[in-house]
């Protein structure tokens, strides 16, 4: 009986896997369908816009109250830079996790800070992009391209924002010395979510910005 109650504190799980890690993977699996539906919505309406502006072509569009010829909306260099930054943030967070597992606080705090900065930069890139596209004539309700583009990337951006808040919280905890090696799983779970947000962008970047 005593043996049993001692077990009850941290019962070994049936699979040997950590329960919270199993939960975040389950949640990530569910999120796949969330983004798949948004991507489907973007692709089904690709090329179905009644008016401009369009992603890669010049088109007739309404700007400042009159029909004019609009430039293509996408500007690849900026978003490529943002993509690279997000990819590197994934690299940085595995290094931070590595540091946490080794009990190397300096490494943990340094790389985690870099991750958070990258995340903030990506959000900034997206805000600038939205602002810029809007001034090029692509309002939220201008056409199906605009609506589906802003909705898809906007939801991704929301996920990035939540990830940044989560990782920033972990950073504060790390600075206070509350992420010792035996609690590195807390960071691992946040990192898994962050990588997921990254792989979603790995899909969105070519599908939305590059594909014909």
């Amino acid at each position: 009986m005593a043996h049993d109650t001692a077990h009850a504190l941290h019962p070994p799980t049936a699979t040997g896997l950590d329960t919270r890690k199993l939960a975040i993977w389950t949640f990530i699996g569910s999120e796949c369908l969330f983004f798949a539906t948004l991507i489907s919505n973007y692709l089904v309406y690709k090329g179905e816009s009644l008016v401009g502006p369009l992603p890669h072509e010049t088109s007739q569009c309404m700007l400042h109250g009159q029909m004019t010829t609009c430039e293509p909306i996408f500007e690849i260099p900026l978003v490529t830079f943002g993509t690279a930054v997000l990819l590197f943030s994934s690299f940085f967070v595995v290094l931070a996790l590595n540091g946490a597992q080794q009990g190397n606080r300096k490494k943990l705090i340094g790389w985690l800070s870099a991750t958070v900065v990258c995340g903030l930069f990506f959000i900034g890139m997206q805000v600038y992009e939205f602002y810029h596209f809007y001034h090029k004539g692509l309002g939220y309700t201008t056409n199906l391209f605009g609506s589906s583009f802003y909705t898809l990337t906007g939801f991704h951006g929301t996920h990035v924002t939540l990830g940044v808040i989560w990782l920033a919280t972990m950073l504060v905890l790390a600075i206070r010395g509350k992420v010792p090696p035996e609690k590195s799983l807390n960071l691992e779970i946040a990192a898994l979510y962050w990588h997921f947000v990254d792989v979603v962008w790995i899909v969105i970047f070519p599908v939305v910005y590059l594909m014909r």
Binding site: L33, F34, T37, N41, Y45, Y140, T141, L144, S147, T151
Partner: peptide, 26 residues
């Protein structure tokens, strides 16, 4: 998640003026 997105799109159509399910906007 699929109905979540569908409901969001419908809400956007109704409250923000998008045309995901409105033929007049494509």
């Amino acid at each position: 998640p699929i109905i979540t997105v569908a409901l969001v799109l419908l809400m956007l159509d109704r409250s923000f003026g998008t045309h995901f399910f409105v033929p007049s906007g494509g």
